[in-house]
Simulated assay, not measured.
Amino acid sequence: MHLAQELVAYIDRLATLPDVYLKIRAALDDPDVSIPEVADVITTDPSLTAALLRLANSAFYGYARKVESINRAVSLIGLEQVHDLVLATSVTALFAGIRPQRMDMARFWRDSLRRGLLAREVARLVRGMSPERLFVAGLLADAGHLVMYVAVPDLMAMVLDTPLQDNDTLPDVERRIIGCDFAEVGAALAARWQLPVSFGVLIGAQLQPPSAGEYAASAALLNLVSAAAAKAGGGPEHEYPVHPESLSLAGIDAETIEAALEPVEAQLDMMMSVFGTGQ
Rank of each mutant, 00 (worst) to 15 (best):
M158H: 08
V159Q: 10
V159M: 12
V159N: 13
L160D: 15
L160G: 13
L160Q: 15
D161T: 11
D161N: 15
T162H: 05
P163F: 02
L164V: 09
Q165A: 15
Q165G: 13
Q165L: 11
Q165C: 02
D166Y: 06
D166L: 08
N167G: 11
N167M: 11
D168A: 12
T169Q: 10
T169F: 06
T169I: 02
L170D: 06
L170M: 14
L170Y: 13
P171H: 04
P171M: 05
P171A: 03
P171Q: 03
D172F: 05
D172T: 11
D172K: 05
D172C: 06
V173S: 02
V173H: 04
V173E: 04
E174Q: 13
E174H: 02
E174V: 01
R175A: 10
R175I: 09
R175Q: 12
R176M: 03
R176I: 03
R176W: 02
I177N: 03
I177E: 00
I178A: 06
I178F: 04
I178W: 05
I178P: 01
G179H: 12
G179L: 07
G179Y: 06
C180A: 09
C180D: 02
C180S: 08
D181K: 09
D181C: 10
F182Y: 15
A183C: 00
A183Y: 01
E184S: 11
V185H: 00
A187H: 00
A187Y: 00
A188P: 05
A188Y: 08
L189W: 12
A191G: 07
A191R: 15
A191D: 15
A191P: 00
W193H: 04
Q194V: 10
Q194I: 06
L195V: 13
L195H: 14
L195I: 13
P196D: 14
P196H: 13
V197S: 14
F199T: 03
F199R: 07
G200V: 04
V201L: 11
V201C: 10
G204H: 07
A205Q: 08
A205R: 07
A205G: 05
Q206F: 00
Q206M: 09
Q206D: 00
L207I: 14
Q208Y: 12
P210W: 10
A212R: 01
G213D: 07
E214D: 04
E214S: 09
Y215T: 06
Y215C: 09
A216H: 02
S218E: 15
A219Y: 09
A219K: 09
A219M: 10
A220G: 11
A220T: 11
A220W: 11
L221R: 03
L221P: 05
L221K: 03
L222C: 14
L222K: 11
L222F: 12
L222H: 13
N223W: 07
N223D: 09
N223V: 07
L224H: 01
L224G: 01
L224Y: 01
L224A: 00
L224Q: 00
L224F: 01
V225N: 08
V225C: 08
S226C: 12
A229S: 15
